[in-house]
Simulated assay, not measured.
Amino acid sequence: MMAVDRGLAVLCVAVFLGLTTVAGRFRFPQVSTVTTGAIVAGLVAARIGYVAAHWASYVEAPLSIFAVWQGGFSAMAGIVGVAATLAFQLGRTRALAVGWGALAIAGGLWFTLQALIPPVTYGPFPYHLTLTTPSGAPLPLARFRGRPFVVNLWATWCGPCRRELPMLDAAATRNRDVPILLADQGESPAIVTGFLTREGIGVNNVALDPSRRLSQAFEVAGYPQPPSSLRTARSCSFSSASCRAPPSPMGSIWQGNTDEPTQPSLSQLSGVAHRRRADSASSCAATRSVA
């Protein structure tokens, strides 16, 4: 499955492409001839806009700017990029007005659908659950009560999980101030340990949840899944699948003296928080993070 926000983006691009194609067939052929180039320019502008807005997160690993499969695009920057390309290609003509009109409809659809998507909500963290280590030892989640920590839900069959797991394991090894628990969902110890051995990933930060009880508790539909949240001084509310501001690969931190989560800082997560989106953003199906 595709993350919700990515699906909406594809839908809006398809709407824009469809409108310009119709306009090209009936009266303004020049519009349809520049549409593909405008979309490509818009995607580039969207990526540049996102990276610029979160530059502090990318400065330590600039090559990750090119990891577009992990998500991270600015809708507003993308729309501006498309509009500018259309203006450059079409000039001050009626065809430009048609192209901008199609863009306005697609952009309006994007922002409308984004506004209509309800926020993701989770209940209190399930401290009562007990997972196991790859060696079979019990790992009660109650041991994390009283301090911030991060839980990432993953599976060996999930492509994005496989890509981000070495990074998460490295972050967990470097920074012990905020423990990162990599909780495999629904797989046997043999499968998990075999995968970890092949990939050269240690077992110290990995836990097994063969019954997928964490997934059930958070109503997770896809992986990798960090149930993410944003916390204010007075209330705690959950964001949508993107984990923006700044984007976080590991999601949110559950404060040890409360059952409610808060967004981790870049310093707490060793400067790697920008490498994951909501996605929303490169998940096999859905959205977000914990602690």
Rank of each mutant, 00 (worst) to 15 (best):
F195T: 06
R176G: 14
T156G: 05
R213W: 10
A95W: 01
Q185C: 03
L168K: 05
D184G: 10
G101S: 08
I180Y: 03
G200W: 07
L103Y: 02
P179Q: 04
I191F: 09
R143D: 13
H128M: 09
P210W: 09
T197A: 15
A95R: 01
R198F: 05
G200D: 08
F125Y: 14
A172L: 06
A170R: 12
P148E: 10
S188E: 12
I117T: 14
A104S: 13
A106N: 06
L165W: 00
R145M: 11
G202S: 09
G123N: 08
W100P: 03
F125M: 13
T121K: 12
V150T: 10
G200M: 08
P189L: 04
L168V: 11
W154F: 02
A170F: 02
G136H: 06
C158R: 00
W157R: 05
T132R: 09
P126D: 00
F125N: 02
L182M: 14
E187T: 06
L109N: 09
V151M: 05
A155K: 01
W100Y: 10
P118Y: 04
V150S: 10
A183H: 01
Q89H: 10
P148K: 11
S215A: 14
G108M: 07
S215K: 07
T173S: 13
P119R: 14
P166M: 01
L90Y: 03
I180M: 11
F195W: 13
L139R: 10
F149I: 05
S211A: 15
F149D: 02
N205F: 04
T133H: 13
L131D: 01
R162P: 00
N204T: 13
R92P: 02
R145T: 11
G91M: 02
P166L: 04
L153Q: 01
S215C: 15
F149T: 04
D184H: 10
A171D: 06
A171L: 13
P140R: 07
Q114P: 02
T121D: 14
L208A: 08
F144W: 12
G107E: 00
R174D: 11
A190K: 12
Y122F: 15
V98C: 05
A87F: 08
G101I: 03
R92A: 13
L182N: 08
R212V: 12
I180D: 01
L103H: 02
G202F: 03
T133K: 14
N152R: 09
A102P: 00
S211W: 12
R198W: 03
V120M: 15
P189N: 06
L116C: 13
R174G: 08
S135N: 14
G136D: 05
F111L: 12
E164R: 05
F144T: 06
E199M: 15
G202L: 05
Q114R: 14
A87W: 10
R162N: 11
A102F: 02
R198E: 11
